[in-house]
């Protein structure tokens, strides 16, 4: 059997551009699941996953390497940054399914569907706002907010993980576009 290597959707980042006030970096592989269901499913999944699922739409909760993002009234994106190997991912699916039991729900593995980009630095919001049509000031988009939106012509999930840090979740084939677009923007904000 030949070696089966994983090829991430985004190559490793090149040298950061000098004088650029924002860092763009692809994040390592993670396990991701879309969970759909009602409150009973939410409670059961939270226990098994290791972080209580948020009940307020467009917010995220994080405990250690596990995060849950509520993206719709009955939709959560579960992200396990500590899990990427197929066996471990499969084990997590089994744990979740076993906790959910007969509670009506849908749990779908989307680990490879999307990838993540870290956008960090004091011009992070400014850089994103070249393409993201949401108000990213902290009053309007506080730390812990996470929502689907658009980045110019690609759909993304935008998640604020710190005052100057965002995580962009994007489908794999759109990831180079989002990365290239944000890179282009990040390099142009030079002082005049």
């Amino acid at each position: 059997m030949p070696e089966i290597a994983r090829r991430p959707a985004l190559p490793a980042p090149g040298e950061p551009f000098p004088g650029v006030a924002v860092t763009l970096a692809p994040l390592p592989a993670a396990a991701r699941f879309v969970l759909r269901g009602d409150l009973a499913a939410v409670a059961a999944a939270g226990n098994a996953f290791g972080v209580a699922l948020p009940s307020r739409i467009n917010t995220a909760s994080t405990l250690g390497a596990r995060s849950a993002l509520m993206l719709g009234p009955d939709e959560w994106l579960l992200v396990a940054d500590d899990t990427s190997a197929p066996d471990a991912t499969w084990a997590l699916v089994r744990a979740l399914e076993s906790a959910l039991g007969t509670v009506p729900h849908s749990l779908v593995d989307v680990s490879h569907r999307q990838t993540a980009i870290r956008v960090e630095g004091h011009e992070a919001a400014l850089t994103l706002n070249a393409a993201v049509p949401l108000d990213l000031c902290e009053e309007a988009f506080p730390v812990g907010m996470a929502t689907r939106t658009i980045c110019e012509k690609a759909e993304i999930v935008l998640w604020r993980t710190g005052p100057r840090a965002f995580r962009v979740e994007v489908w794999r084939s759109f990831a180079p576009y989002v990365m290239d677009l944000l890179s282009a923007v990040s390099q142009e904000n030079v002082p005049d």
């Binding site: 009955d74 849908s106 779908v108 989307v110």
Partner: peptide, 10 residues
């Protein structure tokens, strides 16, 4: 009671 998830890129 059914839910739809896009897995095109998975």
């Amino acid at each position: 009671r059914v839910w739809l998830t896009s897995t095109t890129e998975q």
